[in-house]
Amino acid sequence: MTTIADLKLDADGYLADPNAWTPEVAEAFASELGMELTDRHWQVINFVRAEFAKNGEMPSLRRITKQSGVPTKELYKLFPKGPAGKIAKLSGMSKPKGCI
């Protein structure tokens, strides 16, 4: 099993190379965050990965809630107390910098 200790992280504690992401990376971050990933979590993570593959950057939370099929209320339930950072970590992105 992959754990956080096996991953190369950046100074903020996010995956250093977004292209090194695999589903095991998400699982490793999830256990660090004390989360259990459900299909709905994966729907968000897979959406972020697909957007990253297309645009080379993490989509905004607004975009995620509009296009992934997971609305705002549910997103904040799935990733409580700071969804932006949690989604970025789980999806292999760096610390989010956007305003929206």
Partner: peptide, 12 residues
Amino acid sequence: LVLANAALMMGI
């Protein structure tokens, strides 16, 4: 509005 939303995104 932007600051409120940004705070929530960070867990504030």
